[in-house]
């Protein structure tokens, strides 16, 4: 783990890992889709339940990704490790994309099932706030020319915003919402039938593997971007010194 926490070592190991990660993610998503389209229709929703297999994993990933940003932010603030900031910065646009998917597919599921595209209930509103938090983090990173100067303020903002993640998770228990309560991750076990649970879990694993493939690739890009920046600054400095 300590060996990995070095950008050069990380680049070497991740280069070997990436093709396998892409392949396993694609295969798992394909298996998940195959199982989803073979699963029985819901007795009330009919085939519209197919939206569940892409909406629910996107919602899981939206929260998992922000949790990874929060953990990375602790690494930035406590140990000031450069890879922690790289991890957080690389995860933000991916998390924003999964949150956008959760909102859009939820809306497309809500209209035929609830009769409305949107309601300002606790679950939907807290997920919208999560999406705005992602955009805020991305905007704050972009406000600084030097990524090392952006690391601490962004980490503080990310940790403050993390309070929203448990609110999203428990919003359906704490408040009276149109959104249904949790049916998979419950203390008394899933309430969803196995015929639908297994395809949903397969899609969840596929999305998670896809997220890690995207995250590692984006981290590699961010490390290279910072190397390019450092080398350009060095080249410009050498030019000034020569004049």
């Amino acid at each position: 783990m300590i060996e990995l926490a070095n950008p050069t070592r990380f680049m070497a190991l991740s280069e070997r890992l990436m093709p396998w990660l892409w392949a396993v993610a694609a295969l798992t998503c394909a298996i998940g889709l195959f199982l989803a389209f073979r699963a029985p229709a819901d007795y009330q929703q009919g085939q519209t339940v197919l939206i569940m297999y892409i909406h629910v994993p996107a919602a899981w990933l939206s929260m998992m990704c922000y949790s990874i940003i929060a953990i990375s932010s602790v690494g930035t603030l406590v140990w000031r490790h450069p890879l922690a900031d790289v991890s957080a910065k690389a995860a933000a646009p991916i998390g924003a994309a999964f949150t956008f998917l959760a909102l859009v597919t939820g809306s497309l599921w809500g209209k035929p099932m609830w009769g409305t595209w949107w309601v300002w209930d606790a679950r939907l509103t807290s997920v919208l706030i999560l999406f705005l938090m992602y955009l805020g983090l991305i905007a704050l990173w972009r406000a600084f020319d030097d990524p090392s100067r952006a690391a601490r303020p962004v980490a503080i903002l990310a940790l403050v915003g993390f309070v929203n993640v448990p609110i999203i998770k428990f919003s359906v228990d704490w408040w009276n919402t149109l959104h249904q309560p949790a049916s998979v991750f419950r203390l008394d076990g899933p309430t969803i039938d196995n015929a639908m649970l297994w395809p949903l879990l397969a899609m969840g694993i596929g999305y998670t593997l896809l997220f890690f493939a995207l995250h590692v690739a984006a981290m590699r890009n961010e490390i290279m971007r910072r190397r390019v920046r450092a080398m350009r600054v060095k080249a410009a400095g050498a030019l000034v010194a020569a004049e």
Binding site: T48, I54, A58, P93, A97, L101, W109
Partner: peptide, 20 residues
């Protein structure tokens, strides 16, 4: 039932994930 909503949801998901 609601085929348009299902197709739209899968199309948006495919576009965003492939875009990423």
């Amino acid at each position: 039932s609601h085929l348009g909503f299902i197709v739209a949801a899968y199309s948006v998901t495919a576009a965003v994930l492939l875009g990423l």
